[in-house]
Design a protein around this nucleic acid. Structure first.
Lengths: 132, 132
DNA sequence: CAGCATCCCCGGGGATACTG
DNA sequence: CAGTATCCCCGGGGATGCTG
């Protein structure tokens, strides 16, 4: 079990600190935790996917945003793009080893939130009815 | 009637599936992983903080956005707000037990990203110079 | 101190059309 | 299929001012 102490110390002692406005880690974290970035990494955890497969899997994402998201993640070294020069074209996206480690931690969070939704929904009802 | 969406959810064996556009878990995940939500939960992991302490800790957040973020997290049952009727007023924010579990997983991700920044920055340089 | 209210701007992001 | 290009709108979010 990770202690409070260890988690807190890590934040202060690392060369990169996401709580600092100008830290480059904040940009990457926004790619990873952004509206579509997180879901994209999560979807790719199960295996490589083609563009439109990915698009169907990440329900609601537009072509433009998926393209943009993939570029950012590829640039950060989290996703690898493999294009086959066939006709029709076939492009596969897969996680890099680093992306895989990020996605793993991301999915831990995602699954926990999914599993907590009943509690969250109950909290909302309490909150709303308390000030109705 | 059985929709494609319901079948997809069935595959995960979870009542909530964040990959489905209409799933309520997506909203909560956006609160948790949003630009300011994640940092706010992370900051509160170390202990309860007052409004302006929090604001200084989450470098760059505006008053309005912090207020908005805290309301959303409080409504979702992740943050508890404790107001003292003193003068001047004192309000403490702290994680609920649920919020604490979320924050723990969040910090694992944040910490990992911070620790990967050298690798990320290197990947960016490779990416950029490859198409300069 | 802890905020809500208001104004306002810019860019996130959707819709559509087009290309290789 | 796998995108890019363009248009355009709405709301995220900053700045400022005010209150208890």
């Amino acid at each position: 079990m990770t202690t409070t102490q260890e988690l807190a110390e890590g934040l202060d002692d690392l060369p990169y600190n996401v709580f600092a406005k100008a830290c480059p880690s904040r940009g990457t974290l926004e790619h990873v935790m952004g509206r579509w970035g997180g879901l994209t990494l999560g979807a790719l955890y199960e295996g490589s996917l083609r563009f439109n497969e990915l698009r169907r899997r990440v329900d609601g994402v537009s072509e433009k945003m998926l393209s943009q998201t993939l570029h950012a993640l590829e640039r950060d070294g989290l996703v690898h793009r493999e294009a086959q020069p066939t006709n029709p074209p076939r492009v596969d996206y897969e996680l890099t080893p680093l992306g895989r480690q990020v996605a793993e931690r991301l999915l831990t969070l995602i699954h926990f939130v999914e599993g907590s939704m009943d509690e969250v929904l109950a909290a909302r009802e309490r909150y709303d009815s308390a000030r109705a």
